[in-house]
Amino acid sequence: MTPYSLAFYVDVIATGTVLGVRPTSSPDHVTEALGPGFAENSFDDLTMCRDYGLAEFFWDRACADQPWSGHHFTLQVHRLAEGNRALAGETLRARYGRFAPRLRFGKLQHLLQRRGIPLLEIPELPANAPYYRTFWQPGSQAAVSVVGTYGEYTTPDKLRVGDVYSIQAPMTAEEVERRTWAPGAP
Rank of each mutant, 00 (worst) to 15 (best):
T134S: 07
T134C: 03
T134P: 00
T134L: 03
F135L: 04
F135C: 01
F135R: 03
F135I: 02
F135H: 11
F135Y: 15
F135M: 07
W136S: 02
W136A: 02
W136N: 01
W136D: 00
Q137T: 09
Q137H: 14
Q137I: 05
Q137V: 04
P138T: 14
P138H: 13
P138Y: 12
P138G: 11
G139A: 14
G139I: 04
G139F: 08
G139M: 08
S140N: 08
S140W: 10
S140M: 13
S140H: 11
S140T: 13
S140L: 13
S140G: 11
Q141D: 12
Q141N: 14
Q141T: 15
Q141V: 13
A142S: 15
A142C: 14
A143W: 01
A143I: 03
A143Q: 14
A143V: 12
A143S: 15
V144Y: 06
V144K: 02
V144Q: 01
V144N: 03
S145D: 00
S145F: 05
S145I: 02
S145N: 00
S145P: 00
V146Y: 03
V146F: 09
V147A: 13
V147S: 06
V147R: 10
V147H: 12
G148M: 13
G148F: 14
G148K: 14
G148L: 15
Y150G: 09
Y150R: 09
Y150E: 08
Y150L: 11
G151Y: 06
G151W: 04
G151Q: 06
E152R: 14
E152K: 10
E152L: 10
E152F: 13
E152V: 12
Y153V: 09
Y153T: 10
Y153W: 14
Y153A: 11
Y153Q: 13
Y153C: 13
T155Q: 13
T155L: 12
P156I: 04
P156A: 11
P156Y: 03
P156L: 08
P156N: 04
P156C: 04
P156F: 09
D157V: 08
D157I: 01
D157C: 05
D157K: 05
K158I: 12
K158S: 10
K158M: 15
K158N: 11
K158G: 07
K158C: 12
L159D: 05
L159T: 02
L159W: 01
L159F: 10
R160K: 07
R160G: 10
R160D: 09
V161H: 07
V161D: 04
V161N: 05
V161A: 11
V161L: 09
V161S: 10
V161I: 15
V161E: 12
G162Q: 01
G162N: 01
D163K: 02
D163A: 06
D163P: 06
V164A: 03
V164N: 00
V164S: 04
V164L: 05
V164I: 04
V164D: 00
Y165F: 10
Y165L: 01
Y165M: 03
S166H: 04
S166P: 00
S166R: 06
S166A: 12
I167V: 14
I167K: 04
I167H: 08
I167N: 08
Q168K: 06
Q168T: 07
Q168I: 01
Q168F: 00
Q168Y: 00
Q168M: 05
Q168R: 11
A169G: 11
A169F: 05
A169C: 07
